[in-house]
Amino acid sequence: MKPALTLHERTLNLTRFPVRKIETLQAWDAADEYLINHTHDMELDPQRPILIFNDSFGALSCWFSTQGNVTSITDSFVAKQGCITNLKANQLPQINIIDCLAELPEDPQLVLIKLPKNHRLLSWQLQQLCNHLPEDCVVIGAAKVKEIHTSTLKLCEKYLGETRTSLAVKKARLVFIKPNPALAQPMPAPKKWDVPEHGITLTNHANVFSGESLDIGARLLLKHIPQKSKYTDIIDLGCGNGVIGIKAAQLNPQANITCVDESFMAVASCEANARLNLKVPEQIKTVVTNCLDSIQYSSADLILCNPPFHQQTTITDHIAWQMFCDAKQVLRPKGQLIVIGNRQLGYDEKLKRLFGNVDIIAQNDKFIVYQSGK
């Protein structure tokens, strides 16, 4: 793993977050380098804002932090902490870091977008920009060549303005978008749909997993959430829109439910769904954090978990492993962890290694629901 980004006689030491003892992936990619190289000779006004969207671990934020008034916009708590960590490590000025639902700074001069794979998020961000940008603002998107499709460019044209692309360099490409105020329109409301078999109505912000229907993994897990009077504290780990935590609250009205996610949009959706579906919405508390970092040890009787198997665009199992390790610390003695995962992910081996026990409580052609006890 290469820890140092060196360009234009300047070096940044960058790490991914959370920090792992053995890291095999670097904290930036060729698209970051392409953006830095392309804008190197650009004359920037130190007073007008520079907006950076979806900066995975702060490489772009660190680079531009000495060149102007930088605001980083992210939906990821992990990305935010990575940016803060790398700014401190390189002794760079602090920048403004906001979530995707916050108001943007006025009169930006430059917008850099690491184009997300989630087209719902991209559409939302482009519409937000179209409502906000002055006509002289320079907008440049970037991603790996394989992640920029015709549909990606059509979204840029539809929601922000005239779009053209660069040549490919190191398998990355830039997308240049000229803001067109005539395309501005009111921001769309979050998607909403019903789960009639459970009497639940869900609303989802743009970057929440399975944002237009209930995913089949959650549908299976919903059928196997236990109902026991002994539960006083239940955690929905990686809560997304909160459907699992809401069902747990309906089944266990005596319990305090904590819904945890690293996505600000997910937690905002969960809070809205608690108000939509629970007589006492305060039964659910939400926390934005990395896995269970800020949760007290030995404080939960039951943890329900549908782990992600990717970080940004990288497929990985280290997030699930950290979730399981954190769960063991946070569970009380005799507490239970219930996990759902794709068959091929082999979570049973990890759970048995960590807890010393694992049972299969449900399965179908694609998913298995596991249970381990502390």
Rank of each mutant, 00 (worst) to 15 (best):
K2Q: 08
P3Y: 06
R10T: 05
T11P: 02
F17V: 01
P18Y: 06
P18V: 05
I22Q: 08
L25K: 15
A30G: 13
N37Y: 05
T39C: 13
D41P: 03
L44D: 09
D45W: 07
Q47S: 12
I50R: 01
T66W: 07
N69M: 12
S76R: 14
S76E: 09
A79W: 03
Q94W: 03
I98Q: 10
I98F: 06
A102Q: 12
L110E: 00
I113R: 01
K114H: 12
R120I: 01
L121V: 11
S123R: 15
V139S: 11
K146H: 08
L153K: 02
C156K: 00
L160T: 02
G161A: 05
E162T: 10
S166R: 11
A168T: 15
V175H: 04
F176D: 08
K178F: 04
P181H: 04
M187I: 13
P190R: 11
D194W: 00
V195M: 01
I200K: 04
H205E: 13
S213Y: 00
K223D: 15
K228S: 09
D236P: 02
N241Q: 08
I244Y: 01
P253Q: 09
A255Q: 01
C259W: 01
V260N: 03
D261E: 02
E262V: 09
A272E: 05
A272I: 04
N273E: 02
L278T: 09
V280H: 12
E282L: 09
K285V: 12
T289M: 03
T289R: 03
L292R: 02
S294N: 13
L304Y: 09
N306E: 11
P308K: 13
T314K: 15
A320G: 07
M323K: 12
D326H: 14
A327N: 05
L331Y: 03
L337M: 08
I340F: 05
G341R: 06
E349N: 09
K350E: 00
Q363E: 14
D365I: 02
F367K: 06
G373V: 14
K374Q: 12
